[in-house]
Design a protein around this nucleic acid. Sequence first.
DNA 1: GAATAAATTTAGAATGATTCTAAAAAATTT
DNA 2: AAATTTTTTAGAATCATTCTAAATTTATTC
Lengths: 125, 125
Amino acid sequence: MTRQRAAVLEVIRSAKCHYTAEEIFERAKEILPNISRATVYNNLHALERERLIRRITGEEASDRYDSSFIPHGHLFCTECHGISDFEVPDFREALSRAAGGEIDSYELKVRYVCPGCRMARQSNP
Amino acid sequence: MTRQRAAVLEVIRSAKCHYTAEEIFERAKEILPNISRATVYNNLHALERERLIRRITGEEASDRYDSSFIPHGHLFCTECHGISDFEVPDFREALSRAAGGEIDSYELKVRYVCPGCRMARQSNP
DNA sequence: GAATAAATTTAGAATGATTCTAAAAAATTT
DNA sequence: AAATTTTTTAGAATCATTCTAAATTTATTC
């Protein structure tokens, strides 16, 4: 656990939303001003392998990262492209049975129109 | 529905696996040799909007496409990077309730080690 | 059915996220 | 402390996707 890896992890842990690699890089620079983008990517991969963070592959070009391991799904708004979390039951057991062997992780992605955009739509349809 | 859009849709519908945009482009050229890559991308987006195909955002950099609308999840092997389908119950109703409004589509992604890779692992661990 | 307008296609340039590379720095082992 | 391994760094390279502007096709109007 180098200082750089700790900084990347700290940024993700203290985030109130899901950051992209670029956003993590910007914030890690506030802790270690000389940190390089490549190091952020290296450590995101390492931390994912060590299961300290999870990668969210969304609708956008860039992935986002999450440090929560409480089972939850992700809601992707198709209008404002916002992402929010939502509770889901723990499927792990059922999925392992369906997959015919132990699973690694799972992600439930839902595309929808978020309450904010839905309201805005009603005002000017 | 132009000839180009029909060709793209035909390639996806007759596929036995999930192709990337590049793979679709290669196969569409067998039908319309002058088709351009940009046209394939245009039509993939249009077909997705029209709900004739679904986009699968996986572990790789490039998205893949599916023409099946039978509810199913995708299993991503973390070793060989293969993708396979698996049956899941239709969550739509439950998800709409959880999301607090109608949902657009959903995708259940599972990362695991596929049976082939698991066996190969046991032989030389 | 020709004239006009709108939409689509094309080839290639541009963009942008991520990966690669090779040298320097840091950490670890002997 | 010398030697080895791992990590970091800056910047170049890659690769999927989007953008652009001109050409073509399709639809609409007279």
